[in-house]
Amino acid sequence: MKGIVFREFIDMVESTFGEDVSDGIIESSDLPSGGSYTAVGTYSHTELVTLVVALSEAIDVPVPVLVHAFGKYLFGRFHALFPVFFEGHDDSFSFLCTIHDVVHVEVLKLYPDAGLPDFVATMSDDGKTLFFEYHSHRHFSDLAHGLMDGAFEHWKETVDIQITDRSTDDKQVILFTCTKE
C-alpha cells in the first residue's frame, strides 16, 4: 500500500483526535516501519490495519466505522491533491466509472508497484443506478464505501447503497448497488 494512504491516515488522526492520540497509536503498535511513512514509499497494508485497530481501541469506535470515516476523509484529500482526476465530471457516477480505467492507470504510471483494488463499474440504462463491484485481497471494502460516500457528498447527491457480499475464500468481492434518489 502506498505511503500516501498512511500519511493521510496519520494526518486525519492528528487533526481529529490530536497529536497525543496519533503518537500513542504509533508507539503502542509494533510497526515494521516504525510509523515513519513517506508518500512515495510502499508499506504492508497490515500496518494500516494495526493502526486502525489501535485507534479503535484508543477511542472506542468500531474498526469498520473508522475505516469508512477514513475513506470519506481520503476522498476530500484526493480531490485536493489530484484535482485533475475530478475535472470534467458533473456527478459521482461519472467519476466512479473512471476510477479503474483512468485513475488507477495514471497511479500505476507513477507507482508501478502500487497494489490497487479492482473495480468493475456498470451503469444502468437510465443512469440512476451504478453497480460498483470491489475486488481485493486486502479486505478494505469499508474504505471503498467511505470513498464513495465522500464522492456523493462532494457532488451533493443523495444515494442509496445496497451492499451484497460476493466474497470468496481468498478474495473480498463486494457489490455496491448505488441508486440516486
Binding site: F17, E19, D20, V21, D23, G24, I25, I26, E27, S28, S29, D30, G34, G35, S36, T50, L51, V53, A54, E57, A58, I59
Partner: peptide, 28 residues
C-alpha cells in the same frame, strides 16, 4: 495486535512528555 493505547485518559500532558512526543515525531 497493537497494545491498547491509553491515550485519552490523560487530560493534561506534562511539558516533558510533550517534548518526548515531539522528539519521536521528529525522528519519524
Amino acid at each position: 495486535m497493537a497494545k491498547k493505547a491509553k491515550l485519552n485518559a490523560k487530560n493534561t500532558v506534562s511539558p516533558e512528555e510533550k517534548i518526548n512526543r515531539l522528539k519521536r515525531k521528529i525522528e519519524r
